Amino acid sequence: MDALKSAGRALIRSPSLAKQSWGGGGRHRKLPENWTDTRETLLEGMLFSLKYLGMTLVEQPKGEELSAAAIKRIVATAKASGKKLQKVTLKVSPRGIILTDNLTNQLIENVSIYRISYCTADKMHDKVFAYIAQSQHNQSLECHAFLCTKRKMAQAVTLTVAQAFKVAFEFWQVSKEEKEKRDKASQEGGDVLGARQDCTPPLKSLVATGNLLDLEETAKAPLSTVSANTTNMDEVPRPQALSGSSVVWELDDGLDEAFSRLAQSRTNPQVLDTGLTAQDMHYAQCLSPVDWDKPDSSGTEQDDLFSF
Rank of each mutant, 00 (worst) to 15 (best):
E33R: 10
G54D: 00
T56W: 09
R9W: 15
Q173N: 06
E65G: 10
G194L: 13
R13F: 15
A10K: 15
G8V: 01
S117R: 12
S67F: 11
G96S: 13
S245H: 03
P295L: 14
L99I: 11
P237D: 10
T277M: 03
K166E: 14
D191Y: 05
A121S: 09
L103M: 09
Q86M: 06
T77G: 06
L53T: 01
P222N: 04
R266H: 06
T267F: 08
E235T: 09
Q173G: 03
K184P: 14
T160V: 11
R13H: 12
G8I: 15
L11R: 08
S245M: 07
D122I: 01
G54H: 00
S6T: 15
E40N: 14
K220S: 06
D37T: 08
D214A: 10
K51A: 02
V192C: 07
K294D: 07
L141A: 13
H28S: 15
A10H: 03
A221P: 13
K220G: 03
T89D: 09
G45I: 08
D303P: 08
T200D: 05
A278Q: 09
N105Y: 09
A133E: 08
P201K: 13
W249G: 08
A68N: 11
A78H: 01
L206E: 12
L242F: 10
A208S: 13
L11A: 06
W172K: 02
D304K: 08
A130P: 00
S135L: 02
C148M: 01
T277F: 10
A145F: 00
T160P: 00
G275K: 02
E217D: 13
A258Q: 10
A208D: 13
V174L: 01
W35D: 08
L4S: 02
N268H: 12
T89R: 15
A241F: 10
A69R: 13
S49R: 01
I113C: 01
G8S: 09
Y52R: 01
P237K: 09
P222C: 06
G26M: 01
A80G: 14
A154H: 01
T160H: 15
V58K: 01
I108N: 01
T230M: 05
V167W: 13
F171P: 04
Q139M: 12
T104N: 01
D214T: 11
S112T: 15
N34L: 06
Q106P: 03
E142T: 15
S112H: 02
K51T: 00
E250V: 03
L57A: 14
T100Y: 05
A195P: 08
M153W: 13
K152I: 06
R182I: 15
A278H: 10
I98K: 03
R182V: 10
Q279M: 06
G299D: 00
T100S: 10
E177M: 14
V58I: 14
L276Q: 13
R115E: 09
K72R: 05
K5T: 04
K204R: 08
V247E: 15
I74N: 00
R182G: 12
F165W: 04
L103Q: 03
S307V: 08
E65Y: 10
R73S: 12
S135A: 11
V271K: 14
E188A: 13
T77I: 07
D214N: 09
N105P: 06
A10L: 08
L193Y: 02
C199T: 05
S245D: 12
G254A: 11
A68V: 02
Q136S: 14
H137G: 14
E178F: 11
L223R: 12
K83H: 12
T36C: 08
P239D: 08
C148R: 00
L206R: 08
Q136E: 14
V75C: 00
W22Q: 10
D2C: 01
M55E: 12
A219G: 15
L203K: 06
I132P: 00
Y131I: 04
T38R: 15
F169T: 02
N211P: 07
R27L: 12
P289L: 12
P15H: 15
C119M: 01
M55S: 07
R182S: 15
Q270Y: 14
R151E: 01
L203M: 09
V271A: 12
S14Q: 04
W292L: 13
E188R: 15
A10V: 15
G63I: 05
H137C: 13
P222L: 11
A168V: 06
L203Q: 07
S265H: 11
N110C: 05
M233K: 12
M233L: 09
N138H: 15
Y52I: 07
G210T: 09
T149S: 15
M233G: 09
M46N: 14
Y131R: 00
H137R: 15
S227T: 13
A278E: 09
T104A: 05
L287G: 13
P15N: 07
M46K: 08
D122S: 00
L53C: 00
Y118Q: 12
T149V: 11
H144L: 10
E180H: 07
F259K: 06
N232F: 05
